[in-house]
């Protein structure tokens, strides 16, 4: 039932798409520009990637970023999958407040999340100091903060993956002699797996890309790539940052396309019932 779209509408749509991709394209082009100051094209080069990889601080930030992303994704995937499963399985009167709670980390400005965690950590530190313990803001504080905004994405992806399935599947497994753990492992997890993987990929990307929350929770000694980019940008544009940004964009694009591909074959929804 396809309707013809007005040529003006098509033209407008492609203009908007152009607008969306122009900066990314420019970024990529400039990362190969053999000019220290950008602006003008001075020939093709890959040297900025070399410069980038030679930078000690970049390598350290990369390690930090990956460590945070991997561990936070691991935790949030487990927690988020369980939440998604619960959302699918139980229709409780807490459903609306629960959804509200899950949507909140997604919609509140990340500045708010960042500063509230900053104060939370400082208060916890104050409390711990009374007992003689202490900690620095760094890997752990950033990682926990990331888990907080990742959970919702994983939970909602898993829930939407399971949404097409009959809730009595689990009862059927129990009825056929599976314990609740067995029915989770043999029936529910295989069905939810694409959702779990897609959710994990989204969570990983989010962690990789996060700047604001990391900025407020990382303290001075711990930098991730986005924080490093921010600091550099504040100092002035350098071509190696273009190269770094290009790499990050690339990783994200691959992750998103993968997540999309995993989720695409939707479950065969109910029978004809």
């Amino acid at each position: 039932m396809m309707r013809r779209t007005h040529p003006a509408l098509s033209a407008w749509a492609w203009l908007v798409y152009g607008f969306l991709y122009l900066p990314i394209l420019v970024l990529i082009i400039f990362s190969f520009n053999d000019s220290k100051f950008g602006g003008t094209w001075a020939g093709f080069t890959t040297k900025w990637y070399g410069v980038l990889l030679a930078r000690e601080d970049v390598r350290e930030a990369l390690t930090n970023t990956l460590l945070v992303a991997l561990s936070s994704t691991l935790i949030s995937t487990v927690l988020g999958t369980l939440v998604g499963l619960g959302l699918w399985r139980y229709s409780t009167r807490f459903r609306l407040p629960l959804t509200f709670l899950l949507v909140t980390p997604i919609v509140i400005p990340d500045v708010v999340m960042g500063v509230s965690l900053l104060m939370f950590y400082s208060l916890v530190r104050g409390g711990l100091e009374l007992t003689g313990w202490t900690f620095e803001n760094g890997f752990w504080t950033v990682m926990f903060a990331h888990v907080t905004f990742q959970i919702s994405y994983v939970a909602l992806t898993v829930r939407s993956r399971l949404a097409g399935y009959d809730r009595s599947l689990e009862e059927a497994a129990r009825d056929l002699g599976a314990s609740s753990v067995q029915s989770f492992l043999r029936v529910i997890l295989p069905l939810a797996l694409p959702g779990v993987l897609a959710g994990a990929l989204l969570a990983f990307t989010l962690s990789l890309d996060d700047f604001v929350v990391t900025y407020f929770t990382s303290g001075s000694g711990f930098r991730t790539l986005p924080v490093l980019i921010y600091t550099s940008v504040k100092k002035g544009v350098t071509p190696d940052i273009n190269a770094l940004s290009t790499l990050l964009v690339l990783v994200t694009v691959v992750a998103i396309i993968a997540a999309n591909a995993i989720m695409r074959p939707r479950p065969g929804r109910r029978g004809e019932a």
Binding site: Y165, D166, S168, L169, E171, A172, A173, D175, L176, V187, P190, L191, P267, G268, R270, G271, A273
Partner: peptide, 14 residues
């Protein structure tokens, strides 16, 4: 020692 035939059949799709 009981088994059920569900209204929706609840066959495992995978």
């Amino acid at each position: 020692p009981v088994n059920t035939v569900f209204q929706s059949y609840a066959l495992f799709p995978h």
